[in-house]
Each structure stands twice: as C-alpha cells, then as structure tokens.
Amino acid sequence: MTVATASAATDQEGTGIETRELCLWYGDFQALRSVTLSIRRGLITSLIGPSGCGKTTLLRCFNRVNERYGYVRTTGEIRIHGKNIYDPDVSLVELRKSIGMVFQRPNPLPLSIYENVVFGLRIHRPRSELGKTKLDEAVERALGEVGLWHALKDRLKSPATELQLEQQQKLCIARLIPTEPEVILMDEPCSALDVEGTRAIEELMWSLRGRYTIVIVTHNMAQARRASDESIFMLLGEIVEHRRTEDLFLNPRDQRTAEYVEGRYG
C-alpha cells in the first residue's frame, strides 16, 4: 500500500492532509463546496463553525467513513502524505489503518479493555505474528501513552463499556496507537465529557502532538483556542479562513469569522 510509502516524498513540506476542489453531496444536498486546504503535519488543527457547516462531513472524508451511506457522492482530491485517497488503487482497509478516528460519543467495542486495545493488531496482522508477549507490550505501551495503564492494569479483562466516559474516550484513543496511524481524526471528542474529562483529553492531545497529525472538530470555540495550533473556520460547506489559531481568534481577516468568533451567531 501506498499511503505510508508515499509519505517520505512530502516530508519536507510538512503537509499532512491536502484537499483540492473537494465537493460532497448527500443525495441532492451539497455539504462541501470546493474545499481546498492543507493541514500541516504533526500539528493539531481544529475545524470550527456553526452546526451544519460541514466540518464533521469534511473530517469523515479523510478516512472515507462517509461512504458507508450509499447516497454520498464526492468529487475532487484528498491527498494524505501526498497520496490521493480517492485513487482506485487505495485500499480502504489500509487507509483506515493509517488514519485513526475518535468519535463524539466514546464507543469502545463491547469487548474487554485488553481486546479493545489489540483490536487493530488482530484485524491487520496475521495471527502468527501476534504472540502473547507482543500483544501485552502493545497494550502496556498504548495504555501508557494515554495515561490509563496504572488505573487499568489490574483489570484488563473487564468489559470496556463499564469504564467511566473519560476513560472510555482515552481508551478509544489508545486503541488507535498499536497500528501506528499517521493521522488521528477527532469528532468533538469532549462533547460527552465533563470539565475534568475535557481537560484530560486536551492534555492527552498535546502529549500526542508532533507524532500524529491531529484534526479535531469542535463546537467549543474556547477549546479550539486552547488546544490547537491552527484553526479552520467553515461556513455553509466552504472554508472561510484557515490560519494560526491565535491569529484567527485575535485578528480574523474575514468579517464572517470575526462575527462568529465574537459569538454573534452559531
């Protein structure tokens, strides 16, 4: 597969995700209008905008999970580390392996904590490669990276769906780590969490920054401001403004951005 191998060529530019003239229709409704952008590698980029502006749709294009629904039509290009993910030779399985996703409601699988973390390895690696020690190491590393190892190491066999929401969401991030994704997409990952949980996830995002290209959709402008390097403001399926987060919030160029950031609508 090519997503991984093509990445070396574009390393210097530091571009993680690039779209060109991306349009998307749900049936007759056009949800994305000629979206052209480039998201920098290794940084946290937030997508903001009022409900229905297409930010979640755009996020879900990056791993093509939109295509589950038969009535979605897409034109244009998305290049992730230089490779157009809509090329016919791209395998969805490999694409999704290298682009992890975290959902709005924590959705750990109805399996044990341990099995949740090794799920990616089990589906992507042949059984012969998965010795017990290897799986154990992967679990310790992944849970360690999200700060759950000490809390959960004694009950790895208990069902993941019984954890607190914050731990569930961290687990949903941890389960991406063993297959070594390059991009992590987050769709309002904190909207089901309380203040403490939100803080914990944001801290986790900062600790993952640099190793993964992180794109986060958020409704919460304060969160975008606290927890991202760059921000993209979207309205009615179009990109209005894409700049460093401080610049976008402190002196927006576009009138519409200024009004949204001030809270006049949304």
């Binding site: 999970v65 999704r96 996703m101």
Partner: peptide, 14 residues
C-alpha cells in the same frame, strides 16, 4: 448500536 460498527470500520476492519 451502530457506533460499534462505525468504530470497527473506522479501525479498518472489513
């Protein structure tokens, strides 16, 4: 729940 299917597919499962 559909969220389980979505989680699994988004991990690259067939």
């Amino acid at each position: 729940p559909d969220s389980f299917r979505e989680a699994s597919l988004a991990m690259g499962a067939t």
